[in-house]
């Protein structure tokens, strides 16, 4: 966690009260944590893609960075309680309601339940929506592992293994005109030199949706089938109207 602060220092400081832990590892354009930190503990700098530099020594555990982080990659650790556990404050925005006193699952970064924790308090993250900051007590050994709390844990099961080889089947390409891939390829094999010509004869992309839905896929298909680059294959000629419109309206009727 080089730039996100020395973990040993964070661990020590957490004995005195809440302190932020940043789990931000990737160079993407993002900097709201910097703006929200009144203490200047988090600095992104001029280049918005740089990783934040975090100085835990300046953190007062206000939790504003936890509430603003789009990646939900910041949480608070507080080890000041006398019973030796860890008190974590995490963002929460799932459908199931959480309130103080609830027993909740504590999940690690892979979504595996570590066990149950007890909700100490919840606070609205901001005035503009219904998301929460949830403070939960967990055993100390989970302090750096917990990434989320949940009322309900998904139980989806494993996918089933399918035996036997899967034959390549034919399927539709153009849903409106119900033209299959093999039909389209038959037309492509006739040697048309553009997507426009292919459309004229095969009717792919000539239906109600006018190819707005399938064009990108057809370009790929046709360029593969005809061994041509996509720019050479081209696009459908665009003609008005680009959305279906009642004839009466085109004729000047209102409503």
């Amino acid at each position: 966690m080089g730039e996100s602060g020395d973990i040993d220092e964070i661990w020590r400081r957490a004995e005195g009260g809440a302190v932020a832990i940043l789990d931000c590892r990737e160079e993407i354009p993002c900097d709201p944590c910097e703006a929200v930190c009144a203490r200047g503990a988090i600095v992104v700098g001029k280049n918005v893609c740089d990783l934040p530099r975090y100085d835990p020594g300046l953190c007062n555990g206000c939790g504003r960075c936890v509430a603003i982080c789009p990646g939900m990659a910041i949480y608070l650790l507080d080890r000041s309680s006398r019973d030796g556990g860890a008190r974590l404050t995490l963002p929460y925005e799932m459908k199931e309601e959480i309130k103080a006193g609830d027993e909740v699952w504590a999940l690690d970064e892979d979504g595996s339940p570590l066990g149950k924790g007890k909700v100490v308090k919840t606070a609205k993250m901001n005035k503009r929506d219904h998301s929460l900051l949830v403070t939960v007590d967990v055993p100390e050994e989970w302090a750096l592992k917990v990434r989320g709390v949940r009322i309900r844990v998904m139980s989806i099961g494993e996918p089933l293994e399918v035996r036997g080889c899967q034959r390549e089947e034919d399927h539709l390409l153009c849903r409106c005109e119900e033209i299959s891939r093999s039909q389209a390829r038959e037309y492509a094999a006739m040697g048309f030199n553009s997507l426009r010509a292919l459309r004229r004869f095969s009717r792919v992309g000539l239906g109600y949706c006018q190819g707005r839905f399938c064009q990108a896929m057809l370009v790929d298909e046709f360029s593969t089938a005809a061994f041509r680059d996509r720019e050479g294959v081209g696009v459908f000629k665009v003609r008005p109207p680009v959305r279906p419109v009642k004839l009466g309206r085109l004729g000047g009727e209102n409503g």
């Binding site: 993407i28 990646g71 999940l107 970064e109 892979d110 979504g111 595996s112 998904m154």
Partner: peptide, 15 residues
């Protein structure tokens, strides 16, 4: 996709 987006679904247990 961004790792942060990935992290969020992984921590929900999505394979």
């Amino acid at each position: 996709g961004y790792e942060v987006h990935l992290d969020r679904v992984r921590r929900e247990g999505v394979p």
